[in-house]
Amino acid sequence: MRYLLRRLAFYLVAAWVAVTANFFIPRAVPGNAVQAIMSKFPGQLTPAAEQAIEAMLGVGKEGSLWHQYTTYLSNLVRFNFGVSVSQFPTPVSTVLGAALPYTLTLVGVATIIAFFLGTGLGVLAGWRAGGWLDRSLPSLMFVQAIPYFFLALLVVEVFAVTLGWFPAAGGFDGQNYSPGWNGGFISSVLDHAILPALTIVVTSVAGWMLQMRNVMVTTVGEDYVIAAQAKGLSDRRIIVTYAARNALLPQLQGFGLALGFVVSGALVMEIVFSYPGIGLLLVNAVQGTDYPLMQAIFLVITFAVLIANLIIDLILVLFDPRVRAREAN
């Protein structure tokens, strides 16, 4: 319990840093970039909306910095991110709510598939280091070094434009279906998600594989694995219950840390597929100088990554007796 509480405290600190950075960045930047938004819509903003933007960005002069900060925090707690400028006058939280499910399912499912696939392949490569799978790693590194979005461009060109197997853009077929829990819409969403998901899996699998392979190579050299071999246990049993089981723990820890990178890459990729998720929203917000939306997206992504990390910590406590032992002391 103490271990978990410590981790929880850490994530709270991280969240606080993100929230505070979000508050100070627009105030630290010189120039009138922020005032520009206000002048973009003279007389169009309701007083309440104007106040929300002011609190979010610190445009208004009234109140001390501390007062602004507390107002900003209390707005955040109530999910009041202000009003989107580019999709005026929709509140930012509504815009976010429409995009979030797409990203969560697409990026979440694809990342989990890539993790398990890459870890499995890494186990095999590390078990027989120098074998054919292991020697194919340099070419996989090349695949991994290709920028996500570039591979996405090629994939769209080949599979969507030339071959026409999959739709080239969008999250669902808006002409024939409307969002809702009906079969047509869901199958349309799945159809649109296959290519982006495939691209995420292909580009990130090599990273997981390489990491797992390196841990696995070290684990295979351990005495307990050799002892297991000397006992004459089957390969399968040695791999699964002796080597991979232990090698998996650092891999899981790495999963939490790498998550930020993976999610970032996936966000950029959404742009290529015009997938109606958070990534596309973020870029549109930047291009439309929609600062309230931009900031809210950053916070949402950060919190998602923090929560995922917390879940991984919980899993680690469950799987790793060493963590539990440390906790008992």
């Binding site: 850490f10 627009p26 970039a33 930020g260 970032s264 973020l282 100088t289 950060t302 990554v305």
Partner: peptide, 17 residues
Amino acid sequence: VFLVIPALPLLIVMLGY
């Protein structure tokens, strides 16, 4: 803290300003 906060969205926000 710096490790756990996703870098790219923060980069985009900072460069946006």
